[in-house]
Computed example of a mutant assay.
Amino acid sequence: MLKTVIEMEKAALILKLLGDKTRLTMVKILDSHDCCVCEFVEIFKVSQPSISQHFRKLKDVGLVKEERRGQWIFYSVNKNNEYYSFVSQILDQLPDQGEKLKELEEQGTRITCC
């Protein structure tokens, strides 16, 4: 197996970004589910601008990508990012966050977008 080595500065930047519990949880969820900003507003009970700020930071390093679907923008982990193998090793150590999306489904807010 070919092992990817990343620069210390990039590793530190990514670890700093993922050091925020909200962003870490967002990336863990997005690793297996596409989501809209609105869903994260519901999950974390914070404002839409706050969630958008987290997304901006994650998009700036290319860890997250967005896709427009009709009037909504859905986010997902960019698995083609050169640092994804580094990030995925971290995500593999974390508990599944699917129950947060299941709660949204049960509340009827899973894809209730802005």
Score class of each variant (00 low, 15 high):
E82I: 15
E9F: 10
L24V: 01
C35T: 08
D96V: 11
C113R: 11
K10Y: 10
C113Q: 05
Q93G: 04
R69P: 13
D31I: 08
Q71N: 14
K21A: 10
T109E: 00
L94K: 02
Q93M: 12
V77L: 05
M1G: 04
G98V: 10
L63E: 01
L15C: 13
Q48C: 06
M1Y: 02
A11E: 14
A12H: 12
D60W: 05
V87W: 08
V41E: 07
V5K: 15
K16W: 06
C35R: 01
N81D: 03
C35G: 08
L94R: 01
Q48K: 14
E39Q: 08
H54E: 07
G108P: 03
M1L: 05
K100L: 13
K45V: 07
D31G: 12
S50P: 02
Q48T: 13
Y83C: 12
L15H: 15
V64L: 02
Q93I: 09
M8D: 15
I43A: 00
D96K: 15
E103V: 14
C36N: 11
C114N: 14
V27W: 03
L94V: 06
Q97M: 10
G70C: 08
T4N: 10
L18R: 06
M26Y: 00
I73S: 13
D92Y: 04
S52P: 05
V61S: 01
L2R: 11
H54F: 00
E42S: 08
V64W: 02
L17T: 00
I90A: 04
D96N: 15
E66V: 00
E106V: 08
V64T: 02
D60G: 11
V37Y: 01
Q93R: 08
T4I: 10
K57W: 06
